[in-house]
């Protein structure tokens, strides 16, 4: 085991621009991280000011191993992401990762990928790494993003809450309408969407992998702060698992989204 490996690495911001209202693309020079990264893993970003000490976990959206570039896409939702959105290109930000388990790449012939809002980013690296046919379903509140990036890998179906693009309503309605099936369903998004995807997959008899979010104290398994519930081994009740270390991707048959 390599000792005293540096956990927080300052990375240079190569590109930083808005993709949609309040949604930013952040490209970092991070050869060490992209060399190891798997689809569905995440990195911790650290703020610099305002007494904000805890990590901001952000999914790996895409990696470019040749150039050593890490692409992240995040939404401004609070003070940390607001601060980060102000970092100019050429500036540095501290990053830890890759963290978590990531998606298991199914060897089957057809994959269904489902993203909701800022759950969409990890689907890009996932789509890139999966061989076989891919069909992609995305849900947004309003303005969609990353649709073009994903279209390279398969047909993309979009739903928006306000009907500004694609189907007006939820991504699940769209999936029901298409009666979509495949060998594996991969999803990332808000809990209500994951719950609906989980139920859909169970009803259709499709195995699923769901990527969860939880508030994190460390991101690497040190604090037991980020738990979710999974079915207890042998049936009755539940056990807590760490989202950062045992996840963020869980088997849809096991995880209990309460």
């Amino acid at each position: 085991m390599c000792h005293e490996k540096n956990a927080r690495i300052p990375c240079t911001i190569m590109k930083h621009k808005a993709l949609a209202e309040g949604v930013y693309e952040l490209v970092l020079e991070a050869p060490g991280i992209v060399g190891e990264a798997k689809a569905g893993q995440f990195v911790n970003l650290y703020c610099k000011t305002g007494g904000k000490l805890l990590p901001r976990p952000i999914s790996i959206c895409e990696t470019d191993r040749e150039e050593g570039l890490l692409r992240l896409v995040y939404a401004v939702v609070g003070s940390g992401t607001r601060e980060i959105s102000g970092y100019p290109e050429g500036d540095q930000i501290e990053v830890m990762g890759p963290l978590g388990n990531g998606y298991t790449l199914d060897q089957g012939a057809r994959h269904v990928l489902v993203g909701g809002g800022v759950g969409t980013p990890p689907l890009v690296e996932l789509a890139k790494r999966l061989s076989g046919e891919k069909v992609i379903y995305l849900g947004f509140r309003t303005q969609p993003y990353l649709v073009e990036s994903l279209r390279e890998y398969g047909p993309v179906h979009v739903a928006t809450d306000d009907g500004s693009q694609g189907h007006k309503g939820t991504v699940l309605e769209l999936m029901e309408e298409h009666q979509v099936t495949g060998g594996m369903l991969y999803a990332c998004g808000p809990t209500p969407m994951l719950r609906a995807v989980q139920a859909y997959a169970l009803a259709k008899g499709i195995p699923s992998q769901l990527s969860l979010e939880e508030r994190m104290g460390c991101g690497f398994g040190g604090c037991v702060g980020c738990v979710c519930k999974v079915r207890a081994e042998g049936g009755e009740g539940f056990a807590y698992k760490k989202v950062c270390k045992d996840g963020p991707v869980f088997d849809g048959k096991e995880v209990l989204l309460t």
């Binding site: 000490l53 805890l54 508030r215 104290g217 604090c223 980020c226 738990v227 807590y240």
Partner: peptide, 16 residues
Amino acid sequence: GNPAPRIAETYGGMLN
């Protein structure tokens, strides 16, 4: 242990 969320950030610190 307790249900999640178990962690909250505070100025210069954290609650668990």
